[in-house]
Design a protein around this nucleic acid. Structure first.
Lengths: 225, 225
DNA sequence: AAGTGGATCTCGCTA
DNA sequence: TAGCGAGGTCCACTT
């Protein structure tokens, strides 16, 4: 890992072209050759970058200014960094990172709802999680108090895509004489108005899910802090 | 901008919980208080981070180890960094970045196609770009040689989503007596087989677009390198 | 290897 | 300001 702070100018050409005017920035060169150019603000996304696999070549431009050329191995993406002045330059041996351990996204929400199907509707009971259909798995297959099949699509963010997905499942499942009739429930922590409108128009019920409350029901002691 | 190289252990709790075991990493602290934790590989995405607005508090854990706590201002997201050993620590004044100048994504493709509608089909002429409907803007509204309306959806990558989107527009527009009948054209630089099948099944025409050729027609001198 | 869907998405536009 | 779509998306997982 090499860290360089420099006044520089950057041009990228690839799927798009982009230009960074002369300014002071941090250039991070990772051991796999990848390069990140960060400013002193914004989010975690660099202003410009080159993803591995790629190669870095240090050279000098026609006018004598130091110029780095980073070229992608597979594509013809190129990053050109004109370095006018180096304010800091250091290299560090970091070793291999053991990697991030994640927990608790959509899968967790699905597990919780699978164990507490009644929060989705009175009398609802679970038949299967990840019920397989020809075009993919439905998150939850349930039966209601009357014994009718209910397909549940679970999202953290309930957008139109999720409604479309559930619609495709319902269309397919309603061709199966063993399941028919199947109604749908669209469950999400947050449902966008357009998605709600589309769902309602198609006879799909929308249910808002409180993740924290569900987690509380499941095990109040699980909090990290 | 502060750059720290340290053996550290990181815990994040917020929308999910995540843990980074003890290892040597780069910690980037930006002037707005945001923090990025990078390993010596991967892509431009940090292993862990905190987005602004947030505040960094330096403290000491019960066992005497240095501990940084980064707290989000609006939410209760928290990042805890246990710093076992500091290998490098430097601060730099970068100033405000003038920002990135971009060129040439889907919008550019849309502009080019708007000016060269005949590449989508003989006799096609533009009525409007971003033709507004109740559920959103159609990329291009055209009329063919016979005067019939044609709705065009433009994508760089032609996936099922795009076909669904165009289908929704067509359904709506075909209810409008002034436009009816409206047919659809799905234009993309690359069209996935599944999307092509779905489109064809719905009577939507697929057109592959050559971005470079279009750009060449428009102005061959515009290449950056 | 290619496709699919999620993301602590981020980013930019627009109504 | 909120919603919505695109991204040089990245990323993990599946087929």
């Amino acid at each position: 890992m090499r860290l360089v702070v420099a006044r520089c100018q950057v041009d990228y050409a690839g799927r798009l072209t982009a230009h960074l005017p002369l300014a002071t920035r941090v250039i991070m060169v990772k051991s796999d050759g990848s390069v990140l150019i960060h400013s002193d603000g914004g989010s975690y996304k660099p202003l410009n970058w080159m993803s591995p696999p790629c190669t870095l070549r240090e050279g000098v431009a026609d006018d004598g200014v130091t110029e780095w050329t980073v070229s992608a191995t597979k594509t013809d993406d190129t990053l050109r960094i004109r370095i006018e002045e180096v304010l800091h330059d250091s290299a560090h041996d970091l070793g291999v990172d053991p990697g991030l351990q994640k927990d608790g996204v959509e899968k967790h929400l699905q597990e919780l709802l699978a164990e507490h199907t009644t929060t989705l509707g009175d009398g609802l009971s679970l038949v299967r999680r990840e019920y397989m259909t020809a075009i993919g798995p439905v998150d939850l297959l349930c039966r209601d108090a009357a014994g009718a099949a209910v397909a549940v699509e679970i999202k953290r963010q309930g957008g139109i895509d999720g409604v479309e997905q559930l619609t495709r499942y319902l269309e397919l499942m309603n061709r199966d004489p063993k399941l028919r009739p199947v109604r749908g429930i669209f469950a999400a922590q947050d449902i966008k108005p357009q998605a709600r409108t589309l769902a309602t128009d198609r006879g799909i019920e929308c249910v808002l899910v409180d993740y924290d409350a569900l987690r509380g029901i499941d095990d109040p002691s699980l909090r990290l802090f």
